[in-house]
Amino acid sequence: MIEVRNVVKSFDGVEILHHVTTTFQAGITNLIIGQSGSGKTVLMKSLVGLHRPEEGEILFDGRDLLAMNRHQIKELRKEIGMLFQGSALFDSETVLGNVMFPLVMFSKMSKAEMRDRAMFCIERVNLKGAEGKYPSELSGGMQKRVAIARAIALNPKYLFCDEPNSGLDPRTSILIDELLSDITHEYGITTVINTHDMNSVLGIGESIAFINRGSCDWTGNMHQIYTSGNKALEEFVFATDLFRTVQKYALQHPDEAGIER
């Protein structure tokens, strides 16, 4: 579980995050949603230690990231996997090389064990046969899957995903969402996904934090989002005719949409 308490982050005197407080539970997919410029990427980067907030606490199962020294942060990062928006695969390494990288750097496994573990992760993301290819030879969706395999190679306790669906077609997006959701439940990982994709919100949003103008404006789940009563959230999620229709249908058929009465 990750607890975020009163986190404040500024850049050049401009406060981007205003006392953000929220919780990300273990074993479920936790989504951070919000408009562009709302501060959700800053929040995500603060969670993984790429930005250092001026105030607040970020507790990884009770361990405060902001109170840690460099060595402790380094140790914590071995428990973290991250999927970047652009996949961030190492161009000079093959798929197998990319997935083996964290194992080579931080595990004490033998070369054969590392290879077996990497192959297991590659197979887990349905990329068997692509282990010898370079990132430039793969499609966007395949690159994302390699990045997921690399992120889970060290059995992380926490998995962060920055806009995992950006640049993907809807069908591939759904596959990536399902993969992230399956991995989260299978290994009991605390998964935090930063997304704009409304299919993800309504499909895998087991816990949702809505960031609006640097504050956490609403928390709930994909069933509660239809009846949040939060104007800014409704304008953001149900911005298109399609999603307004989905909302209308859900409200007319609450049992199908899982809405609690």
């Binding site: 071995k78 652009g86 961030a88 695969l89 161009d91 990288f101 931080f106």
Partner: peptide
């Protein structure tokens, strides 16, 4: 710019 350095940092490298 392709976040490969961030990826290394996140891994603790």
């Amino acid at each position: 710019v392709t976040e490969q350095i961030d990826a290394l940092e996140i891994m603790g490298v």
